[in-house]
Amino acid sequence: MLETRNLDKSFGAVHVTRDVSLKLERGERRVILGPNGAGKTTLFNQLVGELTPDRGTVHLAGEDVTALPVAKRARQGLSRSYQKNTLFDGLTVEENLGLAAAIHTGNATTFWSDSLGKAEVREIVKDVANQVDLMPFLHAKVSQISYGVRRQLEVGVALATRPLVLLMDEPTSGVGPEMAKGFHDLLNNLPRDLTLLIIEHDMDLAFDVADTITVLNYGEVVFDGLPDAARGSDLLKEIYLGSWEDA
């Protein structure tokens, strides 16, 4: 469903993505682990097209999308959430979701008819609000909801384009352990045919949702396999033990 081949990227002398090849099957839920600065976010940026790789390709549903701009890839079913909330701050939760749903339903560029009031848009807004527990906050502005709820909205906005592949950059970053656990229950309830690629800092939480695990270290894939194998991996302990405790 989503595949990279030999992706490579440097910022000057800093080599942030080293020959990364990944392959996600349809419906696969893969978690990317890696210490701070391992290049996880930079990899996401290349997958969605916000950054151009120096070398290598990105394939979405069998098609080479490496040269496609961000918006086109998104319309082909690739959606992402951000590590740092990237929301429509002055607007309500409902409007945030509606703007995304309007794009998906083709209502975002008509000057003669409304988008947010359309039945198909409202339906997606309602579905997504249920999926990520935003129903009670629909009419609140982003500035009026708590940080944890904003994290839910961050994923909700990405979901409202009804993607085939959803990339989530540390969806639980900055929220308490209890809320993070609840969040993972939400993720587990997402449709099974949705392909998920999730960056997660917490290893235990990662094992909660992952079908497969990829570990990045210094921009390089150092592990790619099943959670059980990852759990027993000495390499992983070595990379993580230091940074794990203080994360």
Binding site: V48, E50, V70, A71, K72, A74, R75, S79, R80, T86, L87, F88, D89, G90, L91, E95, G98, L99, A100, A102, I103, H104, N107, A108, T109, T110, F111, W112, S113, D114, S115, L116, V157, A158, A160, T161
Partner: peptide, 28 residues
């Protein structure tokens, strides 16, 4: 009419967060 239309709403969305609108698939 324009400001309340799909186009007008997207236009406001772009003012609030252009990067996100693009990431959602809008040709800004």
């Amino acid at each position: 009419m324009v400001l309340r239309s799909g186009l007008g709403r997207s236009f406001s969305g772009v003012m609030h967060n252009e990067q996100r609108m693009r990431a959602l698939g809008l040709t800004v």
